[in-house]
Design a protein around this nucleic acid. Structure first.
Lengths: 333, 333
DNA sequence: CTGTTAGCGCTTTCAA
DNA sequence: TTGAAAGCGCTAACAG
């Protein structure tokens, strides 16, 4: 039924061990032998059984991607990045949603590792910061890499973007367009990125000699509704901001929605800026100024770390990229 | 190192075969024996190796979900549904993106099956209609189920929603609100759902005794841009439609965006209706009337078919659900 | 109801 | 540079 290594060895006229050597790209195989084996593999259309390789060997050619995130766009970007790198490495990706609030989080992750023999694990936010998950992984001594962890970047391999610099750049961009009253909507308090972005916003104002006004900074929860609510508060002020910078794309979309409802012309009456993991914001309203979050690239890099590339770096800080989607209008003096 | 079935058998004082019986919930194990084994399993925190089970047995406890769809929302919904059912069945889901335009599509799918020994395959659109993929699957005689296939529903197990009835219901809903000039935006010509929805629209008009006006029907491609373009054409007419019904949510979002740009008040000046796989449309503009597409449920049902539940049904037609998100205003007479 | 024996398809180890 | 033998951790097919 199934084509096995034995069939290949028979056709190629070598031992199964030699076929194994070729499949694993080992040295010490004569060129001509290798070619014969490769021909047989192609002829029989042989794909080795992962189960057998896993059982006999020390690798499973599989890694797990663990997440508990309900943003489809985010998950998609993460999966894409991990998947692309896995593909390049000839490894399979096991996508594993979990519930970080679950009592048995550690057990679930442990069971996954035992059952599948995965060679490594990628953690995406917020599983990156679930202590039970981290403890279980460390107890087992399995390789793992965290993507955009909220805390303790240094304790393990992790990748993340330079959030402070990104927010600084965006704020400076708005300042350069003439804005002086720039509203800011904070991110979810649980996420370390929120602090970083807030810090970057403030640092840019400082550098430009603009006073930091606490009234122009409103709380948010990284979702559409809190973006709308924050916009409402900001736009009710006597001294309206001329620009609003939201800490993520969902909130920026909320700001846009509120602005439209109020009959404001964006970007004539109000510039709206945000981060962008996705094409969500662009979809909602094109004239939005966004900083592209390199989620996919982060995931790609994280997976590379798992495979031992870039061994030197304990963690990597990836650059951000300022993308002005459409020109925001300069504020009239 | 690893806890194996042997360790469990030693602790429980039985043979490994008995442990195997308990793990597989076979009959013919004395209750007390079963309990002893279960206690040992719990004590040692034993999770059987999938690789070993796969190699020795006839099942792999894994299925593959194959897709080539670039809508994050859609993929997410599909994954969620498949995943939920897999979890209930104690089976792992292998998410496998592919490129249906690839030369080696069949080979890739074949390789996946050989490597992983998956017990079955779920196909999501548009892989559901890639002849090479279907041929490969049939050649191997592996179980597979298609979700919302574009064509040939009957040739294999498949699940899909009742698109014609959904479109009929939505159209009737608009008619009941007093609308007589209802614009319709067609879906992508490659998708069978497009025809179905068009048919449902027309059938409802017929029943209400409203003439079908070809001018009120514009082509679309299931994306934001084509929705905007179609809206532009429809709203330039001398006899503007009072409502526009788009064949999917992305296009409905495009209609809304264009309406806003034109300063139209939705739903005062124009009712906008669409299908909704996602919360995208709601996000863009809440006062949208939508029919909820049961994507997640379809995926869940498809996976059930794969596991042999509902054996009788070759294919299943799932109901749709009309969800009026916010009241559309009645048209003044 | 329970146990014994023989593999599944590979890699590892060791020898040639 | 190649091959033979011994498992990896389970389940299938039998015996009892």
């Amino acid at each position: 039924m199934r084509v096995t290594i034995k069939d290949v060895s028979r056709v190629a006229g070598v031992s199964i061990k030699t076929v194994s050597r070729v499949m694993n790209k080992e040295k010490y195989v004569r060129d001509e032998t290798r070619r014969r084996v490769e021909a047989a593999v192609a002829q029989l259309n042989f794909s080795p059984s992962l189960a057998a390789r896993t059982l006999a060997g020390s690798r499973s050619f599989q890694i797990a991607l663990i997440y508990d995130n309900h943003s489809p766009y985010y998950i998609h970007a993460i999966q894409e990045g991990v998947w692309a790198r896995c593909r390049a490495e000839g490894v399979r990706m096991l996508a594993q949603p979990v519930d970080i609030a679950s009592e048995n989080l550690a057990q679930e992750i442990g069971g996954l590792i035992d059952e599948t023999h995965v060679d490594g694990v990628i953690l995406s936010s917020p599983v990156t910061d679930a202590p039970e998950a981290l403890a279980e992984l460390e107890r087992r001594g399995i390789r793992f890499v965290r993507i955009s962890p909220g805390t303790n970047h240094a304790i393990t391999s992790s990748v993340f973007m330079d959030d402070a610099q990104a927010a600084d750049d965006m704020t400076m961009h708005l300042i350069n367009e003439g804005h002086r009253r720039i509203g800011f909507i904070l991110g979810h308090p649980n996420h370390m990125a929120s602090d970083q972005r807030h810090y970057g916003y403030r640092r840019a104002l400082d550098r430009a000699g603009i006073d930091y006004e606490p009234d122009l900074v409103r709380p948010g929860l990284f979702d559409f509704a809190s973006g709308m609510a924050a916009a409402e508060e900001l736009l009710k002020r006597r001294a309206k901001p001329t620009a609003i910078f939201a800490s993520n794309d969902d909130m920026a979309a909320g700001v846009l929605s509120y602005a439209h409802r109020m009959g404001l012309d964006v970007p004539q009456d109000l510039s709206v800026a945000g981060f962008d993991d996705t094409d969500l914001a662009q979809l909602v309203w094109p004239p939005l100024t966004t900083i592209r979050q390199p989620t996919r690239d982060l995931a790609y890099a994280a997976t590379g770390l798992l495979f031992g590339q870039d061994e030197g770096a304990i963690h990597q800080r990836l650059p951000h990229e300022l993308m002005v989607r459409a020109s925001t209008t300069r504020v009239r003096p």
